[in-house]
């Protein structure tokens, strides 16, 4: 009860009239991407690194069907059940979108008609993505099959269904600064940071959240309750994950742990994507995970 009350009070504060102006969705203009020539091949890498299909493919899609981004998968959360929308290049999806529409959706969580998206869409991570990569992503998405499945409404109750309140949420948690805030990273660590913190959005599940659903950066990658309510998403800092970098890279390639158990649950979806990255990218992710501060088991 105390937790719910805290959430309500928190939302009351951020939703207050004084914040009305500050909560208005802001978006980037065409000028911000002028001169960026789309590269479909890099767009495909961005697509897999960002794991788009894991949520936007139809429920239980496998193989080639994973490239049909018809939407429809349901994501239960403490705030309600979100349904992934159609993002295939059809009228039911993003067929009518310009490149800047996609950039604003992915980077800022703002729809083409200027509304906030719910943060089940991990735009607080994608906000760190480079504009060039998102221009390339749009070009790749346009090559995928069109599908006419209509979008389903989210099942989110009051007060979380007030989209304007997401503006306040973004003010609180939408910071796009790096968690590993170090200007002198090696090229490999810099790439690993980009893949983990921006495109891979690993922290969205592996980092615990506060009562308002914001990520607790002090316990970055320290493990969290599974969003389904059953089990835990593991701590993947060096305090708990004692695998070698080679073991981590091989897991991301094959799905096999060092004990040759296999990835399951949502992580099996993630492996389908990381298996398609280059060996250098998988090694960069492993290097980043070794470099982040350990979150002790006691602090989980």
């Amino acid at each position: 009860m105390g937790r719910i009350l805290r959430i309500l009070i928190g939302l009351g504060i951020v939703g207050a009239a004084a914040f009305w102006v500050m909560t208005a969705p802001e978006s980037l203009s065409e000028d911000s991407i002028s001169g960026l020539e789309p590269n479909v091949t890099n767009g495909e890498t961005v697509f897999y690194a960002a794991g788009c299909a894991s949520c936007h493919a139809a429920p239980n899609a496998t193989g080639e069907d994973k490239l049909v981004l018809a939407g429809g998968q349901k994501f239960p959360s403490p705030f309600g059940t979100f349904v992934a929308p159609n993002i295939s290049p059809s009228e039911a999806g993003i067929g009518g979108w310009s490149t800047i529409d996609l950039v604003n959706a992915v980077k800022l969580g703002v729809s083409p008609d200027g509304a906030h998206y719910f943060s089940a869409f991990p735009y607080t991570s994608y906000g760190r993505a480079e504009l060039k990569d998102l221009v390339d992503l749009k070009a790749f998405l346009d090559t995928l099959p069109a599908d006419s499945t209509p979008n389903q409404p989210h099942d989110v109750s009051f007060p979380f269904n007030i989209r304007r309140s997401l503006g306040g949420w973004k003010l609180l948690f939408g910071g796009t600064g790096w968690v590993m805030a170090d200007d002198a990273l090696s090229p490999e660590l810099e790439r690993g940071r980009y893949l983990v913190e921006a495109l891979g959005h690993c922290g969205e599940c592996h980092t615990p959240r506060n009562a308002l659903g914001g990520l607790d950066r002090a316990r970055w990658m320290g493990g969290a309750p599974d969003p389904s309510g059953k089990g835990r998403v593991p701590n993947i800092t060096s305090a708990a994950l004692t695998w070698s970098p080679e073991d981590v890279a091989y897991y991301l390639e094959s799905g096999f742990t060092p004990e040759f158990d296999s990835a399951g649950g949502h992580m099996a979806h993630v492996i389908e994507n990381t298996a398609k990255l280059s060996p250098e990218d998988r090694a960069a992710i492993a290097a980043y995970l070794q470099a982040i501060p350990a979150v002790s088991k006691a602090a989980e």
Binding site: G255, S262, A268, H269, I271
Partner: peptide, 9 residues
């Protein structure tokens, strides 16, 4: 690995 993961998923 994919066969294992598909079922464990």
């Amino acid at each position: 690995g994919k066969a294992c993961g598909d079922c464990h998923k």
